[in-house]
Design a binder for these strands. Sequence first.
RNA 1: AGUCUCGUAGCUCAGGUGGUUAGAGCGCUACACUGAUAAUGUAGAGGUCCGCAGUUCAAGUCUGCGCGGGACUACCA
Length: 1114
Amino acid sequence: MSKYKEYKKLDFPAFEEEVLKNWQDNQVFEKSVSLREGQRSFVFYEGPPSANGMPGIHHVMSRAVKDMFCRYNTLKGFQVKRKAGWDTHGLPVEIQVEKTLGITKEDIGKKISVAEYNEACRKDVMKFTDVWNNLTQRMGYWVNLNDPYVTYDNNYIETLWNLLSRLFEKGLLYKGYTIQPYSPAAGTGLSSHELNQPGTYKDVKDSTAVAMFLLNDASALKPETERVYMLAWTTTPWTLPSNTALAVGANITYCLIKTIHPHTHELVSVVMAKDLVGKYFKPEQAELDFAAYQAGDKLLPYHISDEFKGEELKGLSYQQLLPFAQVENGDAFRVITGDFVTTEDGTGIVHIAPSFGADDFRVAKQNGIGSLTLVDKRGRFLDCVQDGVFLYGEEYVKEAYLTEDEKQKDLAIQKEKLSSVIKDTSKLNYLSVDERIILKLQTEGKLFKKEKYDHTYPHCWRTDKPILYYPLESWFIKTTAVKERMVELNKSINWKPEHTGTGRFGNWLENLVDWNLSRSRYWGTPLPVWRTADGSETRCIGSVNELQECIEAGKKAGFMPESFELKDLHKPFVDEVIFPSSKGEKMFREPDLIDVWFDSGAMPYAQWHYPFENKEIFEGNFPADFIAEGVDQTRGWFFTLHALSVMLFDQISYKNVIANGLVLDKNGQKMSKRLGNVVDPFATIAKYGADATRWYMISNSDPWDNLKFDIEGVAESQRKFFGTLYNTYGFFAIYANIDGFEFNPDKTTPLAQRTELDRWIYSKLQSLVKTVRQHMDDYDPTPAARAIEEFVCDHLSNWHVRLSRRRFWKGEMNEDKQAAYETLYECLLVVSQLMSPIAPFFSDWLYKNLNGKMESVHLTDLPEVIEAAIDTELEEQMDYAQRISSMVLSIRKKENIKVRQPLQKILIPLIDQRIKDEIVHVQNLILAEVNVKQLEFIDAIDKSIKPNFKVLGKKLGGKMKAGAALIQAMTQDQIVELESKGQLELQIEDEVFVIELGDVEILSKEIPGYKVANEGRLTVALDISLSEELRQEGIAREFISKLQALRKDSNLEVTDKIHILVGEHEYLKSSINQFKTYICTELLAASLEFASGKTLENTIDVDDNSIQVTIQKA
RNA sequence: AGUCUCGUAGCUCAGGUGGUUAGAGCGCUACACUGAUAAUGUAGAGGUCCGCAGUUCAAGUCUGCGCGGGACUACCA
């Protein structure tokens, strides 16, 4: 019975299934948590996925990241509980259900009741839970699926209500306005989702106007004229009556222009952005003489009298342009600055109507500017917007809202009313509100210019009519009230990558607006706010009990039927709750639902049904040590978590966060069903296994960079990293079993007694532990994975094992062999631990094959770094060994001398004694590796010199170029002088510098008569002359090699002894005689005889000579 | 349009504080190795380090302006 299991070949997906089964049968995940009971906890929050869509390959990515740090910290001794969660509310669920049922939103309440509809949503949303759970398990993502939080649970909702009521009590929940896309024709607000439907943006031709706003006191601008106007352009003249401010760009340059008023012909000054002057004035106009101007002349003379930044215009007040109503909710008619102002269109001065533009609204609010909303929800002017001539009140502001008939009727009215300003109204066509406002401005001397303008404008996808931006009532959370605090606390969060925290997230916080919570939908958490019809009394319910009391009061007051029982906190049931206010009036629920982002942002509290239950659990699990999601969650989950914890607890809710990038296809295209480039995670895992997939994803690029997912890369990870590691283990197992080696941790060979090669790899191993710990502690997994890979492939497999092979297969068990096994075993075991967070399956497979003492690698303690074992000097020495070997092999290659042919001597010319000491330590390794007999050091003869730019640059500065040339041109004598004296005077141009040894690098590039190779400061020469003895040994080696192949072809065990019969051949004769013992040892041959005359079974080829040979098992 | 980010070999990626032969792996070609063999070594081909300007003795690296890809936000007078 073998101690270490041997494998013929490894089927990755298949053994992963076995490992998985073992985890499940033995509850390894549960143990990994319970084992750490009483230890410090590492808190992780699971961002809930929505179970109504299929998981994609990007979920493997984000979950690999999550899993990795949870596992890693478990290894470090923390207890890491991971509660799974499901995001269950929201529009995508509704749309999915509507598709399935073949209904539209209008059918809700008609063809299907709200109760039935929501029931359908509840069922539909968990549709793919099985698929998700499968993926979770199969990819090795350890998360507790038995007790997940589900956002539609009554308990979950109750916590949300509690949080909302706390916000309400703090005065942070209020009802207010926001500017939203609104379709007057359909009578509804449109979500951004709806606005992004194809075809909503259409080209339209609008009448635009540049209006003239008269400044009240322009003396600060030192104008040369009495009147000074601000010029502002608009594509929606119908918003001008609602103008309350003008916005300029703080850093935009404006100018004051003296010119003639185009309609009143008086001398005036106007203000506009300097860059746009050319749009309104031609160069030749600047030449015109003001004195020569005659009323009616087409070309107006102008003159730029001054320039200033927008900042200087800030605060100026102006006369209301069209005074139909007064502003009551704030300041008005002032110049303010706005970051959105550009000089691409118009005049660089933006007319602000806060009710009809999101930017306008925001900038007005920031500056304390009030609003005018002179349009009603049907899209018509209020009654007050009339002057008896141009405007008549209660008329549609957009022509598109009228039918042809209505237009004709209006035309008749227009003909009559406009007769006072238009002489002949008989030919008049229907004039839109925009056109009549322009006409009015012109008549009143407030119009600078009018023109038609083509642009795109959003239309309602249902009615095809243009939308308006309109202020709608919504419930808000006053996040702006805690903005500073959020910015402050954000600085204590460790963001990976940092720029997402400081840049994207930081900027987002800086420009924060209040959080619009309202959603006019059906399937979601109902807003727990009840109000009286007149809005005079508002109540925010904070618990189910409280609501129950209200229900009782409602029943008592006769507002609700006695039979009413509240089982579900969703619509429509909560809407049926009506209860009395303090004055006995009916209170109704505000019909809105809340934003689903509130659901997920509240998960730290709601997952534990805090504060109704689990108070201690919550407190012990807040804030999170670590969360990770896609970067697209920056303004989603990352924000809502942060906002809620800051508002409710004045704390951060996560200390470390990884915002991972997208997973694109191999060409860098976003994966989409339409393009057919979606990668199926199940198929990938079925083919290559979860570990290779995970390893590829983590090692290929930093998690926060986008990953170009190439399935070939997964295959490569499997082949290269896992294949090499598997081979290394396989190699260990074969020989360990032959020698009956068994690792005993209590009785290992002291490090000091091991060979340099062993001490070297052990040192490398400790350095690796250190590196991996550092990177993982810093939430930087990619360098950790790459370091492990480099250790396994380059150092362990390709150097330590390769150079140690003979130690394993040669002779009986001895101390050196014992140490070799121990060293390799220790490396493999530690590697299994280090890699286990990333590759949980293979690592456990490896660990168990090595008979680790725990049940699973995931239950072990991560090894501490043994600093004392790190020998940087030795690592440096080995580096020399590797470089020198590589150089020798490269010379062999160039000279076409195969490695099997022994050579006599390596020569290394030396400048620096220290390097010699380093190399001497490892010279035997080098000689064995490159098959050379001896290594000698010689004094460099032909020296060359090179400036050390970094050092010399500081010394020479501007004379560097000339100096470098002079140094490189130094003679041998000069170099020798510099070496012996340690310094040398050198005249560079007109100055003399003292060059010291540290300023230059002296090296030897050539050795007369030898073949050399150079790399950096090292030069290696190889003596390629062949003595007869060397030649004979080469032949012996060639013979051994061919016979080894034959042994193998004959299916002999590596331990089998053999008898060899060789046909007589001149080429071999003397070599075999000379090296008989050596040959026999190498081939495990009991005998080696010449057999002349007999017919032998096999023919081998030794240096182009056909040799007859037979081998027999002894 | 704004904010952030990326742009180095055919592909995927490394390249602290600026320093002179710009690296690795994969792929390709050739050779070697063969008691780990679905591995391994060596060599070769392959680079305007996205472009332009600037700072500097010296720029892949720092600054500015562009170009191109991506993400997010906004949809604008």
